[in-house]
Amino acid sequence: MTEQAPLPQPTGLLYENFGTGRHRESSLVRHALGSVHAEELVAGLAGGIGFMYFVFEYAGHPPLLTIVAQAHPDPWVEAALDRLGVPYEVTHSSRPRWDRVRFALDAGRPVFCAVDRSRLPWHGGIPDEMVGAEPYTVVLAGYEGDVLYVEDGASAPHRIAEREFGEAWTGHRKGRHRMLVPTGPAVGAPDIDGAVAATAARLTGPVLGNRFDVNFGFSGMEKLAAQLRDVRTRTGWERRFGSPEAFFAGTRRLHTCLEVEWTAPGATRPLYADFLDLAGRPEAAALFRDSAGNWSRLAELARAAAPDTDAPGRRALFDELAALVDGSLALERRAVALL
């Protein structure tokens, strides 16, 4: 069998490296800056890890579990660029400004855009109001005529017509056609100490400075463990995820949040541990790697749970998951003390 040569990259691209290493947004930043920085450095400078835990309830739908295991809520791209010392410009507009897009691309500058992911054809192309409310960053990496080349995790850029991309751009209404353009090379050395301090502060809190801080950092982990064990109140998993439909939705979502969405595998902890090795903090790195094992074990148990698991089986699973959260919390408290 003759091995086929890889397809050539289209003309009109500003860079050649595409695809996600371990973390999508870190890879976007790395590639847009010419792949001169390691992915773990970009991820760590952006803040690396965090923890946010909420369960949202909407009429007619099973409870929606949301865990964000990466740094949050500070914007990932801006945080990475700030600590790399890379200057950039952010603009908003009431409509897509294709003149600004082309001006930046013609100058050799990739364009970061916040879009409605659900309207992108490679994500299904079916508008979803809940998905569209969340900012989703992609990079415009070039264009030819009215066709844009978009980096969004795949090993090659996506081709999309300006008009169609404009619908996804407009679909994220809160973004107001936001575009971020790096405007020059890095100035000075990366702010590693500032990044590490910000991560420690985010885990120990407060994060927002309001009543929702209980859902963030170590407090958020404690809340998750407590609700997993809660057999009495309506916010406990016993009641909240007690039906087969809710149990299936909650357990699968738990796996997705810790391994796939808004994270790197292992709740982003292995990637952050690699950053800490670069930063000269190997003891803390080892503890975060141990914690990652707990998070991945928890995610796999959730993924493998049968939708028709009976009540005693659900109770045993929730208790096991809570114990794993406790283990990660203890390890991460020790790690932060070493930062």
Rank of each mutant, 00 (worst) to 15 (best):
A195D: 07
A198F: 05
L180K: 08
L148N: 01
V187P: 02
E151C: 00
A154D: 14
A141F: 02
G209K: 13
H172A: 07
R163F: 07
R159N: 03
R119N: 02
N210Y: 06
P157V: 02
A156Y: 09
P127M: 05
A186D: 09
P135A: 08
D152Q: 06
S219Q: 14
L208R: 15
A133Q: 14
L203S: 08
R232C: 04
Y143C: 02
Y149M: 01
E151P: 00
D193L: 04
G220M: 03
G125Q: 06
A161C: 03
E167A: 07
K174H: 10
T183Y: 00
V196Q: 03
T233R: 08
D152I: 09
G205H: 05
P190T: 07
T235C: 07
I192M: 13
H172S: 10
D213L: 12
D213M: 12
R234H: 11
V150G: 04
V207K: 07
E162L: 00
V115E: 01
T199M: 15
E164L: 09
M221S: 06
V138N: 09
T235I: 12
V147G: 01
P182L: 03
V187N: 07
A133N: 09
T137V: 15
W237D: 02
A133C: 05
G145Y: 04
F165L: 15
T137E: 13
P182E: 12
T199Y: 01
G217W: 08
P157K: 04
M179W: 04
A154N: 12
S155E: 15
T170A: 13
Y136L: 01
V115H: 00
I160V: 15
A154G: 05
G145M: 03
T170L: 11
W169F: 08
H177L: 04
A198R: 15
G145I: 05
F216G: 03
S155R: 15
T204F: 04
T199W: 03
E151I: 00
I126A: 11
G220Q: 12
E129K: 14
W169C: 06
G171Q: 06
V139I: 11
A189Y: 02
K174Q: 13
R202F: 02
I192L: 12
P190K: 06
P190M: 10
A156N: 03
P157N: 07
D152K: 08
V115T: 11
A186Y: 04
F218Q: 09
K174R: 13
Y136I: 02
A186E: 10
F212V: 07
V231S: 11
F165E: 00
G124N: 09
A168P: 13
R239L: 13
E162S: 01
M130T: 15
G209Y: 13
V214Q: 14
G236Q: 09
P135T: 05
P182I: 08
Q227H: 12
E222M: 10
T183Q: 01
A186G: 11
A225W: 12
A186R: 11
G194L: 07
T199K: 00
G209P: 13
R232T: 13
I192S: 04
M179T: 01
N215M: 10
S155K: 13
L140C: 02
W122M: 02
E134F: 13
Y149I: 01
A195W: 08
T170W: 04
